[in-house]
Write a protein that binds this DNA or RNA. Structure first.
Lengths: 196, 196
DNA sequence: ACTTCTCTCTACCAATTGGTAGAGGACCGT
DNA sequence: ACGGTCCTCTACCAATTGGTAGAGAGAAGT
């Protein structure tokens, strides 16, 4: 069976919101992209903002699922970090708008930030505990795990999503470029995290 | 003398565009914030987008000036990196919307990215050369300077601007929090960059 | 007194915005 | 054949959007 209308709307909305942003994407534009009328969108969702929230919910579960799967494998130390970074990167290459949406939600003026946090809080907690454990075990350079987590988050999301900055720096944005970026990022993170 | 109307418009526009974004800020809202009519704004700037470009230009020069000043002092190695990070952080604390605007311009769907690059390209080049020089001199872990620059950029801008993510992680966003964040960031970067 | 220039305003506009009301078709079980 | 539910549509709306035209106030120069 073909994809349901509701799913198609969410797909198109993720693309649009993750690229141009929420405010810059009208319901009419979204509908035109799908070849339907905006009233059809408003049949499935009570308002424009409700579409956004549904997109955020779905994107958040997708991300959380990736983390859960990777954490379930129970790898140790920097290999665990590397495995997660690789998966986030794969996600970012396949669906760049997904992390773009996260950036949209986490902007200062945004609503729905609480909606996202509700999903991600558990994995943040788990990540913090993981870092603390690894430090205690001497497999990672000791530091404040919360701050370290923030640095890791910023670095990974930035390198994965800042395509325009890369263009401005003259870095290739081909698939091969993405692999090179990932490799360099992992080396960077390993150097930052390795115990002395 | 009081600040000119034109400057006041640019100030308010930076605040609004850097927080809520370009699309989400109407000329009417901007004018209301200033206690004037939007036609006054359109007297100084031919269009809404022209306001944005002027804001980008000013923000870019401010940023470039910071780098020029810091680079002119000719410090070596990681101390130079630390000095620049500190200054960027000071800027981010005093005028958070400035880096917020950069994030807005560098989003995938954005126009005006070329306008920003035109300003920043020289300092990117200089930064790349600096990293290369330091690596050659053995004062920095060798790696691809372009990729390293991207990692550095992502980490610094992320840690400085992702206030909502920090809130979601439960990190304090007080001034003291900013200092702690900066310290941890610098330790993180030093660890990542130090030669083996 | 005169014009000229600078600035901010009122008045207005066509287009687009998110959203409502409700018609009508397709498919369902009865 | 019939009522009901699901879905997509046309028609419409008030509010807001970016932008135009031009009036009028004030200061400055002549």
């Amino acid at each position: 069976m073909a994809e349901s209308t509701r799913e198609r709307i969410l797909d198109a909305a993720l693309r649009a919101y993750g690229t141009d942003g929420f405010a810059a994407t009208s319901l009419d534009a979204l509908a035109a992209d799908l070849g339907i009328r905006k009233q059809t969108i408003l049949y499935y969702f009570p308002s424009k903002h409700a579409v956004f929230e549904a997109v955020v919910d779905r994107a958040a579960s997708d991300l959380v699922k990736v983390f859960e799967e990777e954490a379930a494998r129970g790898i140790d130390g920097l290999d665990q970090v590397e495995a997660i970074v690789k998966r986030v990167f794969r996600l970012a290459v396949r669906r760049p708008q997904l992390l773009g949406l996260i950036r949209e939600v986490t902007r200062p003026g945004s609503l729905s930030i609480d909606r996202l946090s509700a999903h991600t809080a558990p994995i943040f907690d788990r990540a913090r505990d993981f870092l603390q454990r690894e430090m205690d075990a001497g497999r990672m350079r000791p530091s404040d795990p919360e701050m370290l987590l923030l640095s890791l988050y910023s670095t990974v999301v930035g390198v994965a999503t800042e395509l325009e900055v890369q263009r401005a720096m003259g870095i290739s944005d081909s698939l091969r470029g993405a692999v090179a970026r990932r490799q360099e990022l992992i080396r960077f993170l390993r150097a930052a995290l390795e115990p002395v």
